[in-house]
């Protein structure tokens, strides 16, 4: 199985020199991605064609956006299991409003507002009521999906708005002569979001506070960092990004039906884990999460190309996450302190 090549790749490069080892361990996510890409390109012809790469980008877009918010929440030592439901709520509300003829701007704004409010609720439940994040967001996972279904009257709703269609269809730099479809606009949106959040994490007080809280909450509090406020804000941001994920989902599927986005929280967490973030908080980078999401969807795409039935893909995802986490764990352990 393809995933088993990961730890071996790690080990063979480990015994050269300390410098190389440091390079490998700090860039392991990227190296794994490159190695997998090369391996997949060599073993499956159509894998590295531009159109297929664009395909991977399009397929990963929703989970990648959710994974930005999840990275932030995991950085502060929390977790948000409700992103799949929250995504569904946002695109459900927007779809219903569009269906009633509401202008796209208003519909999108209200969808995003709703998902941000769910994020706020999560934040308040965790930080103010003191409920464990797993449990609290499990509650909202159940309730929010139901709320969305009730609002949608349990029906499928088509999204026929011109703006959404434009977002879904538009490709950048298509070369029709070479039969190259072009980079999907959705992919550009995802990249821009990652760029923004990579900058936010590195260049704003908020980003610094998030790392401080995740690294040592007590020390951060004793430094005067407004810990609770920053944490609640992080849950709100995660909800907001789930909403954006919902918009992308509505655009790319063109139809909002019950069950949309269910289980995506697990793929999202998988992407964050593949990106090397630590569940205990303080360790992880938004840009590495992007690579993690790319790895995940490369593997899924490769399996599709190799005609591995879609049913196996879920099993493979779970095992992939396990293999990477176990190998990270042991790579971390053998590292000289």
């Amino acid at each position: 199985m393809s995933a088993s090549s990961l730890p071996i790749a790690h080990r063979s490069e480990n015994n050269t020199s300390a410098k190389l080892r440091r390079f490998v361990s700090s860039n392991s996510t990227l190296l794994v991605a490159i190695a997998l890409f090369l391996f997949f390109s060599l073993t499956a012809q159509p894998f590295s064609t531009p159109n297929n790469v664009f395909n991977i980008v399009r397929q990963m877009s929703v989970v990648a956006v959710l994974a930005i918010g999840m990275t932030l929440v995991i950085l502060i030592g929390g977790i948000d299991l409700s992103v799949g439901s929250n995504l569904f709520l946002a695109c459900g509300i927007t779809a219903v409003l569009l269906d009633r003829g509401t202008p796209a701007v208003t519909a999108i704004a209200l969808g995003l507002l709703a998902s941000s409010l769910v994020g706020l609720l999560n934040g308040l439940l965790v930080e103010i009521a003191g409920i464990s994040p797993v449990i609290a967001t499990l509650g909202t996972l159940i309730g929010v999906r139901g709320l969305a279904l009730v609002y949608m009257n349990n029906a499928q709703i088509r999204v026929t708005d011109a703006f959404f269609e434009w977002v879904a269809i538009t490709r950048i730099f298509p070369i029709p002569s070479a039969n190259i479809t072009g980079f999907p606009l959705i992919g550009v949106i995802v990249l821009v979001l990652f760029l923004i959040f990579a900058l936010v994490m590195r260049w704003t007080i908020y980003g610094r506070y998030v790392y401080a809280i995740g690294g040592n909450e007590t020390a951060a509090r004793l430094c005067g960092v407004p810990v609770k406020f920053v944490k609640v804000c992080t849950y709100v941001l995660c909800g907001f990004l789930a909403g954006i994920g919902g918009m992308l989902m509505a655009a790319s599927t063109g139809i909002v039906s019950p069950g949309l986005g269910a289980g995506s929280e697990f793929y999202t967490i998988a992407a964050v884990m593949l990106g090397g973030a630590s569940l205990t908080g303080g360790i992880g980078r938004v840009e590495k999460t992007l690579i993690g999401a790319f790895i995940l969807y490369m593997v899924l795409n490769y399996m599709t190309i190799r005609r591995i039935p879609t049913e196996w893909q879920q099993a493979a995802t779970g095992l992939l996450v396990l293999v990477v986490i176990v190998s990270n764990r042991f790579a971390g352990r053998s590292k000289p302190s």
Binding site: I79, V134, F266, I269, A270, M273, L279, T280, P309, E311, W312, Q313, Q314, A315, A316, T317, G318, L319, V321, L322, I325, V326, R329
Partner: peptide, 22 residues
């Protein structure tokens, strides 16, 4: 392995169901 139970069982949540479907 010293891995967080949440992660271990989350991965299992995915792969065990996946195997059943497969």
């Amino acid at each position: 392995g010293g891995i967080n139970p949440l992660i271990v069982t989350l991965a299992c949540w995915i792969w065990a169901r996946g195997l059943a479907v497969s």
